[in-house]
Design a binder for these strands. Structure first.
Length: 1035
RNA sequence: GGGCGGUUAGCUCAGUUGGUUAGAGCGCCUGCCUUACAAGCAGGAUGUCGGGGGUUCGAGUCCCUCACUGCCCACCA
């Protein structure tokens, strides 16, 4: 027995006191006077800092020979078990270092955190590695904007100084997004935080490039790329978005050079005509049969007053007779299709624009004009020359740079490519046809990436994304990996004036081909996705050698990648390509060669939905409908927002984020807070009355080896239940009453059984990434079962006033004491388990309450280091479930009747009950419950069915409330009539089906039997209803 | 031009391999300040599951078709 004073008991009380004081509120005297409403702002920040400071979620690199570490220390550093199946590893999709947290991040991180915490609480080594991405273009843009404000520019600074500025920027602001992550409660291992430009990772990136080069998988070549004239860099196909816009199709007359006629071409981009080198028509096009071979004097092409350029008309299949005039101008340097035509016909490529998309034609009147200004002027000049035939409206998709929004200018330039096809590569060789970049047999890097998914080594959830992935992989082009930026991993290649390439690990002094010392490093950097595509192994120490580092041995392949479909191709596909490629060369921990199954960067990919606004609109800055998670968190609390996202995260559909929903879950948090207050209040009362409170002591995780048995070895979490069960059995044996007496109160047996059911379902849901299901199960259990029913009933058992006056005999008082003690133990045990169930979803609130519960000595440093409830931890008492559900049905019926009859809320009333033994058997033990929950003063058992207007019937019982008030006969008649019609209809339908021999013959027996039983019940109910209707007094 | 989703209560969404009376939250109506919680408690109303056709003993669930809607991919000037 404890004789501690209530004031000393609750650390929760003192902690909150301090917080409340800081916030200027009056200091509460005890936990009973804790704020009635839950205020997340008082606790969340504190726990977020605590978790980080205590390094609770760090996972140490396993020592080379440490298997079998004896259990995990209760918190802080743990060692991963080498090669153990019980480890769960995830990589955080690195947010851009320039980024601010948005709802997409929050959804992503909530889901990952729930999984990380769940696995951790199941006794697995749960490692979640955070980091940030240097985000080449985004970051460079950000800093350039800053420079512009300061009146300078990247070019004025020079490359080296600029890079330094970006680093400065990163040092200053780079942690903004990770600081925001901490507020979300992400249980990541901060000791492993990386930045993609860290020197460790940079070395690996360089090595990866060099190896791919040596393997002939990277080549440099001239090709039309998507050129962003604002950023002045090439961008990949994926970084281009298309937008349908109203445009114009210009029909322009090109006169023949010999003056014998002309041909009319159609173009949407007249300004590029200055770069035309031919006009193409389809060889089968009768209209132009005679024109093929003629020369054209290209209008407006005169430079410095010279003559116009002449260009040929040629036949090429690409020209479609149906489109425009059937004649197309050919501008190889500014259009990928034209480029291909140029290749086929050995035409030159005339680059007529500079990097900023201004016309570059010295001597031409258009020189120096922006491309759109040039278009206007050219159209005007054509018109003046009488060469503009017509202008048609034309809808077409224009290409925009995703990053800068600039209209993409296809532009011929030298770039570096990662090959996906088996074809001879000539480094620095001539032009590459687009068809060569996509067609043909796949090389190993693409083949492996396809096989990894096709063979099931990587599983997508939802599964349909594997199809999307396959579709894309089967159609990709070579990947342009070079960017003309200054911020990023610089390509380790040097060029000599003759165009020879020297790829080297350290700065070379001469060209490896011709020996000249006149060499210069390529100014290009690598696509950001190239480096992030390597992360799954570079974060674990891969350095380009094929050495198996301890981290790789322990954590590769990672278990799961959680991400949005928007980066499926950008990142997921690239990780698969690069992971499979490089890791195949790294041996397994046992020295065996690695197969594709273990080379993959992750075993599973969970693709989540997009978070939209309440009106299902995509959030965008321009629309101004962006919901800032931090702002929402501030208003509702992180836990409530997390729970909202989890409960709405059903696979396959986007999330329309609704604040109404969040309000609901804030209420849920408040509900739990108040349930906790109720429990603390009773613990204090108990201690004041010198009644011992048994806190669950075994909720922490035991040795991992033990846990892997699946929790069947013992009931870790419910010691008091076990005890009471034993005593119950004895009681049953001793009892000479032939009717079995429930040894424990029904509510105890029931809530524990429900806990078992809920744990089973929640674990299954999480295993299937059904966050919504798991959340709803836990919500239902906590609020519906625990708070609405169990807590209300258990109040009956919590008797603290055990005085001689109240309990005259010592037998009575002992029984009361025992009942209170047992009830408290169950209450606390169940509540503790419920908190643990909820903990992955609402880590802050549960942490706070859990610590308060174990005021003196929490069994672990954090609830996050305790065990997630498993079904086997609790007896699944089926009979208790049935018994309780009948009782609940009865209570609900009585409540409804009372309401109908207008019984004042506070007034007790007697009932009459006609029921089978299933319900009446234990009824004497339930009288108190009936009184408390349905204000039943007395129960009269009736042998005859009850059909009065004050009665209600179910298949299992009739119940009548005895109350002298006239009922609304008309309303009752209406209700019963409606009910009768419904029942009749249902019975008729059922009977028809049962009469159908094809149904009874073909349907499985349990379905037919079930339907029979249901029909019988319905008939009973129908008869009762009809009787009740007949018995209604006539008006 | 290809491909993939979605359409279930006023709103936001669940609904497992077809199987007994389609669910939840919010909102709505009625009554309650019942000493954990009014961010609460209790009771209640609300659905020809987008339209049509088919398969089946049985369809919200499978197939076909139409409509509306969203997304991804794509070199048509």
């Amino acid at each position: 027995m404890s004789d501690k004073k209530p004031q000393e008991n609750s650390r929760n009380a003192t902690e909150i006191k301090r917080e409340v004081k800081l916030n200027g509120a009056p200091e509460p005297a005890s936990s009973m006077q804790l704020p009635k409403a839950y205020d997340p702002s008082l606790i969340e920040q504190r726990w977020a800092e605590h978790w980080t400071r205590e390094r609770l979620f760090d996972v140490a690199t396993p020592a080379t020979n440490s298997h079998n570490s004896p259990g995990r220390p209760t918190g802080g550093q743990r060692e991963a078990e080498k090669g153990s199946a019980s480890s769960f590893t995830m990589l955080l999709p690195p947010p851009n270092v320039t980024g601010r947290l948005h709802m997409g991040h929050m959804l992503n991180q909530t889901e990952m955190d729930i999984l990380a915490r769940w696995h951790r609480m199941r006794g697995e080594t749960s490692l979640w590695v955070p980091g940030t991405d240097h985000a080449g273009i985004a970051t460079q843009m950000m800093v350039e904007r800053q420079l512009a404000e300061q009146g300078t520019s990247r070019k004025a600074l020079g490359r080296e100084a600029f890079e330094q500025r970006v680093w400065q920027w990163k040092e200053q602001y780079g942690s903004a997004i990770t600081d925001q992550m901490r507020r979300l409660g992400a249980s990541v291992d901060w000791s492993r935080e990386y930045f993609t430009m860290d020197s460790r990772l940079s070395v690996a990136v360089k090595e990866a490039f060099i190896r791919l080069w040596e393997q002939g998988l990277i080549y440099r070549g001239a090709y039309i790329v998507n050129w962003d004239p604002v950023q002045q860099t090439a961008v990949s196909d994926l970084e281009v978005t298309h937008e349908e816009r109203a445009a114009r199709l210009y029909h322009v007359r090109y006169p023949f050079a010999d003056g014998t006629g002309s041909i009319v071409i159609a173009t949407t981009r007249p300004e590029t005509m200055l770069g035309d080198v031919a006009v193409a028509v389809n060889p089968s096009d009768e209209r132009y049969r005679d024109a093929v071979g003629k020369l054209i004097a290209l209008p407006l092409s005169a430079v410095s007053g010279g003559p116009a350029r002449t260009i040929p008309i040629l036949a090429d299949d690409w020209a479609s007779p149906e489109f425009g005039t059937g004649a197309v101008k050919v501008t190889p340097a500014h259009d990928p299709n034209d480029f291909a035509i140029g290749q086929r016909h050995s035409l030159p490529s005339l680059l007529i624009m500079d990097e900023t998309a201004h016309i570059h034609l010295p001597g031409s009147p258009y020189h120096g004009l922006d491309r759109f200004a040039a278009r206007e002027k050219i159209v005007a000049d054509l018109e003046a020359a009488g060469l503009l035939v017509e202008i048609r409206d034309h809808k077409h998709a224009i290409a925009l740079s995703q990053r800068s929004g600039a209209v993409i200018e296809p532009r011929l330039s030298m770039q570096w490519f990662l090959a996906v096809n088996k074809k001879p590569q000539a480094p620095g060789g001539p032009f590459i046809e687009r068809s060569e970049m996509s067609g043909g047999e796949r090389n190993s890097i693409a083949r492996n990436a396809i096989d990894a998914v096709a063979q099931g080594h990587i599983k997508f959830t939802p599964e349909m994304y594997s199809k999307t992935y396959m579709e894309w992989m089967n159609n990709i082009h070579d990947w342009c990996i070079s960017r003309q930026l200054w911020w990023g991993h610089r390509i380790p290649a040097w060029l000599c004036p003759d165009g020879h390439i020297t790829v080297a690990r350290t700065t070379p002094t001469e060209c490896s081909t011709c020996g000249t010392t006149n060499i210069q490093q390529s100014s290009d950097v690598l696509d950001t996705w190239f480096s992030s595509g390597l992360l799954p192994f570079t974060v674990f120490g891969w350095d380009g050698s094929n050495a198996l580092t301890p981290d790789l041995a322990a954590f590769y392949p990672t278990s799961l990648l959680v991400t949005g479909f928007d980066i499926l191709f950008f990142w997921v596909a690239r990780m698969i390509m690069l992971g499979c490629h490089f890791m195949l060369d790294v041996p397994m921990p046992d020295g065996a060669p690695r197969t594709l199954a273990d080379a993959v960067p992750f075993k599973g990919v969970y693709i989540h939905a997009l978070v939209r606004d309440a009106n299902r609109e995509k959030m965008s800055k321009t629309k101004g409908n962006v919901i800032d998670p931090i702002e929402i968190i501030t208003r509702y609390g992180t836990d409530a927002v997390r729970f909202t996202l989890a409960s709405m995260a059903s696979p396959g559909t986007d999330i329309a984020f609704s604040e109404a929903r969040t309000e609901g879950y804030r209420a849920f948090a408040n509900k739990i807070w108040n349930a906790a207050r109720f429990i603390f209040m009773n613990i204090e009362r108990a201690r004041a009355a010198n009644i011992e409170v048994t806190l669950p002591s075994a909720t922490t995780l035991g040795a991992p080896s033990k846990l892997r048995l699946g929790g069947k070895e013992e009931r870790l979490s419910a010691p008091s239940i076990e005890r009471s069960e034993m005593s119950g059995e004895q009681k049953n044996l001793d009892d000479d009453n032939p009717i079995p007496t429930p040894s424990d109160p029904i509510e105890s047996r029931w809530i524990v059984a429900r806990l078992s059911e809920t744990a089973a379902a929640a674990n299954a849901a999480l295993a299937a990434y059904r966050f919504d299901e798991a959340a709803s199960l836990i919500y239902q259990f906590f609020w519906g079962d625990l708070c609405d029913w169990y807590l209300e009933i258990v109040k009956l058992r919590l008797v603290f006033d055990i005085t001689p006056e109240a309990f005259p005999t010592s037998e009575d008082s002992e029984r009361a004491l025992a009942s209170t003690t047992t009830a408290l133990a169950t209450l606390v045990t169940v509540f503790d388990a419920a908190l643990r169930l909820l903990s992955p979803f609402m880590p802050f609130l549960t942490e706070e309450i859990w610590h308060a519960l174990y005021s003196q000595a929490p069994p672990a440093k954090s609830i996050a280091l305790t065990r997630f409830p498993q079904a086997a931890d609790f007896p699944a008492d089926k009979s208790a479930l049935r018994e309780m559900s009948l009782l609940q049905e009865l209570i609900v019926a009585i409540r409804a009747l009372r309401k109908e009859l207008g019984v004042p809320e506070k007034e007790s009333a007697p009932i009459r009950l006609h029921a089978g033994p299933e319900l009446t058997l234990h009824l004497e033990f339930h009288q108190e419950i009936l009184d408390r929950l349905a204000r039943v003063s007395e129960v009269h058992i009736s042998d005859a069915p009850l059909t009065g207007a004050n009665s209600r019937s179910t298949a299992a019982f009739d119940v009548a409330v005895i109350f002298e008030k006239k009922i609304d006969v008309a309303a009752e008649r209406e209700r019963l009539t409606k009910e009768l019609a419904k029942l009749d209809k249902q019975i008729a339908a059922n009977e028809a089906r049962l009469a159908d021999t094809s149904f009874t013959g073909k349907a499985p027996a349990h379905i037919v039997d079930g339907l029979r039983k249901q029909t019988a019940d319905l008939v009973t109910l129908r008869d009762k209803t009809r009787l009740a209707l007949d018995n209604l007094p006539r008006e």
